[in-house]
Nucleic acid binder design. Structure first.
Ligand SMILES: [Mn+2]
Ligand SMILES: [Mn+2]
Ligand SMILES: [Zn+2]
Ligand SMILES: [Zn+2]
Lengths: 149, 149
DNA sequence: TCCTAAATAAGAATAATTACTATTTACCAC
DNA sequence: GTGGTAAATAGTAATTATTCTTATTTAGGA
C-alpha cells in the first residue's frame, strides 16, 4: 500500500516534479495515517525528523500529491463557509472551478442509509451527497484554475 | 416560503433570542438567494440598507438561524483542509463535534449517479457522501460544543 | 562536475473567523 | 409608558489558516 521511495520518485518524475526527502516524509506521514490529517498535523509529525521543515513545503507537497493523484483533499469547502436557507431535503452539485453550488433534488439520495453494521458506530444525524464537476460555463476552462474571489 | 417578520420573531423568541431588524434583513438576504451565499456576500447585500452593519452581526445571526433550524451551513469543512492518501473508492463518517473522520466502504454509495435529466448540466467528475453524527466518545456530550483545537 | 529550474525555508501578507468591549436596544416587569 | 437588564450590535483587535515573496539550496539532467 505504502509506496517505496523509488515508486514515489517515478510518480513525481513522470509529472516533471522533483523528488525530495521532505516529500517522501510528508507522503509517508499522510499515507501512514487513518486520521485524515490536516496540514498542521503533517507539519508537526514530519518536523520531528526535519527540524527545518516549513509549512510551505507541506502545502506544496500536498498540492503535488493531489496532482499526481495519490492523495486527495477531503474538504472541498475549507476556503469559506457557505449557507443555505433551503431546508427542504436536497443535495448539491458543485463546480470545482467557480465554486457555484446548485441544488439537486433526488429522493433516492435522500433515502440513503448506513449499512446496519456501520450504524452502531455513530449516532447519525444526517447525510449529504455532493456531486462534483464543472458547470457549463467552466467546462471549457477545466484546466485553467480560477483565482480566489 | 419566506417567513414574515412576525413568524421569524416567533422562532427567535421561542429560543429566548431577541429579534432585530438586522437579523430579519440578513435572513431575507439568505432566504431570497439561491446562490448559497458566503458571509461576505450577505454582508455586502445587507450593508446597502444597514450601513453600520458589522461582520460580527452577520456571523452571529447565522449562528442563531442555524440554532433555530431555518438555515444551515453547507460547508462542514471550511475550518481547515483535511487530506487522505486512501485512493480506494470510499466515503466518510464525520463527527460533528470532534471532527473525527472515519472511512466508510459501501458499494451502493460508490455507484450513485445523477438522474439523466440533471446529468447534462455539469460535467461530473465524482461524488462524495458524508454521513454526519456523533462518534461514540462524543455521543454523551452532543450539546457541549468543543473548543477549537 | 556544472547548470538551471524547481523546491525549500523563513518570514511577510492576506483572508476568514473569532474575541473583546463600549454602546445601544429588545423585551420584560412594573 | 418607564425603567432595568441582559443580549445584540458595531467597531476594532486578535487569531488562525492559507498564500505570497525572496533568498538559498538542491535534484536531476547535460
Ligand atoms: Mn441548497
Ligand atoms: Mn478516507
Ligand atoms: Zn463553474
Ligand atoms: Zn467525536
Amino acid at each position: 500500500m505504502l509506496l517505496t521511495p523509488e515508486q514515489l520518485r517515478r510518480h513525481f518524475q513522470e509529472r516533471g516534479l522533483k523528488f525530495t526527502s521532505q516529500r517522501y516524509a510528508i507522503y509517508r506521514a499522510l499515507a501512514g495515517s487513518t486520521e485524515h490529517p490536516s496540514v498542521e498535523d503533517l507539519y508537526s509529525t514530519v518536523k520531528a525528523s526535519y527540524p527545518t521543515l516549513s509549512m510551505n513545503t507541506v502545502y506544496n507537497t500536498l498540492e503535488s500529491l493531489k496532482e499526481i493523484g495519490i492523495a486527495s483533499e477531503i474538504s472541498l469547502w475549507h476556503d469559506k463557509a457557505r449557507f443555505d436557507a433551503n431546508q427542504a431535503s436536497h443535495h448539491h452539485l458543485v463546480c470545482l472551478r467557480c465554486k457555484k453550488i446548485e441544488d439537486l433534488y433526488d429522493d433516492t439520495l435522500d433515502r440513503l442509509a448506513l449499512s446496519p453494521k456501520a450504524k452502531h458506530r455513530y449516532r447519525i444525524t444526517g447525510h449529504r451527497v455532493e456531486f462534483h464537476g464543472y458547470c457549463s460555463r467552466c467546462k471549457p476552462k477545466m484546466n485553467k484554475p480560477q483565482k480566489r474571489r
